[in-house]
């Protein structure tokens, strides 16, 4: 099913069960945050894990998706589904523009160009009138889904977020296990060789980048809707760094790694929030520990231990 191997299917069903059971045990808003970040990390992982390109500017797509969803909800009073989709379209279009410029380089240069372009987006958001600058867009109504489902209830909203996450997760899985994904893996493994087989690798990388940024925009839009606010934090480079850390912690190039990474990172932010700046210090220490001791990330190490591809 969906190209899942047997152990992956078991892991997926376990994740599905947790998604269904957890809101009855844990605070749903916290879980929604986890799921939004998880979708963001999965989309980011599509680039780093399967194309081998480290984007350091993914916050631009996350934040802009959030702004567009928030603005269209608040000002145009659109349906939630359309507002979230518009967030995705924003991510995709912005991804096309920035990706077109960045995709010509690889490695550290790609990371630097994406970072620079994302900073430009950040300053645009700081100055542009519709984003509300430092204040952000506040008091965004959650509105209705398909015109009749009221999303102001946390459990209803949670159901929507869970569906968006699962949809995105399965789409990414399909992308990875498609004829297109096969070429992407070829590019990751050996780009000159892929070129010599007659593939125009830039086209493949750009499309992958757009798919990744579209899903990132959807994740950003969903998050803005959950919290009713879109702020500069989500476009900031620190968010780009955080998503790199999240993916690395969970396991680069694994299907479930980014999800696990998000659970850990968001939990840390949530439960260590009382210690203020120590959150950042703790994250830094964990990052160093991760790089030094378990380079494959949590899921990567588990997979390696069990000799399974998770």
């Amino acid at each position: 099913m969906f190209g899942f191997s047997r152990p992956q299917l078991i892991a997926f069903l376990a994740m599905l069960a947790l998604i269904i059971v957890c809101p009855f045990v844990v605070y749903p808003v916290f879980l929604m945050r986890v799921l939004c970040m998880a979708l963001f990390a999965c989309a980011f992982n599509l680039m780093i894990g399967y194309v081998g390109l480290l984007s350091f500017g993914h916050a631009a797509f996350f934040g802009m998706g959030g702004y567009v969803t928030a603005w269209t909800m608040k000002v145009w009073h659109l349906d939630a589904s359309i507002a979230i989709l518009l967030g995705g379209v924003t991510g995709g279009v912005l991804g096309l523009c920035l990706g077109y410029l960045a995709i010509r380089r690889s490695g550290i240069y790609f990371a630097m160009i994406t970072l620079a372009l994302a900073q430009m987006v950040y300053f645009f958001c700081l100055e542009a009138p519709f984003t509300g600058g430092e204040d952000g867009i506040q008091q965004v109504p959650r509105g209705h889904l398909f015109g009749f489902i009221d999303l102001s209830n946390d459990m209803t909203m949670y159901a929507l977020v869970a569906c968006v996450f699962l949809g995105g997760f399965l789409l990414i899985h399909r992308i990875i296990h498609s004829p297109f994904g096969q070429v992407l893996k070829g590019i990751r493994e050996n780009e000159p060789r892929t070129t010599s087989l007659g593939y125009r690798t830039d086209d493949y990388k750009l499309i992958a980048f757009m798919l990744s940024t579209s899903l990132t925009g959807i994740a950003g839009g969903t998050k803005a809707l959950v919290f009713g606010i879109a702020t500069l934090t989500d476009v900031n480079s620190s968010t780009s760094g955080e998503i790199v850390l999240t993916t690395l912690l969970g396991g680069l190039g694994t299907v479930f790694g980014p999800v696990m990474g998000s659970v850990v990172m968001v939990s840390m932010e949530n439960y260590l929030a009382q210690f203020g700046a120590w959150v950042t210090v703790t994250q830094g220490v964990i990052f160093m520990f991760c790089v030094l001791a378990f380079r494959r990330g949590i899921i990567g190490e588990i997979g390696n231990f069990l000799k399974l591809k998770l």
Binding site: F2, G3, R174, I175, H177, S178, P179, F180, G181, Q182, V183, L197, G198, Y199, R200, D203, Y204, I207, L211
Partner: peptide, 15 residues
């Protein structure tokens, strides 16, 4: 796979 032309079909299964 080159024989199928460009493989941009990310929605199709690997099968």
């Amino acid at each position: 796979q080159r024989a199928r032309g460009a493989s941009f079909d990310f929605w199709r299964p690997e099968t």
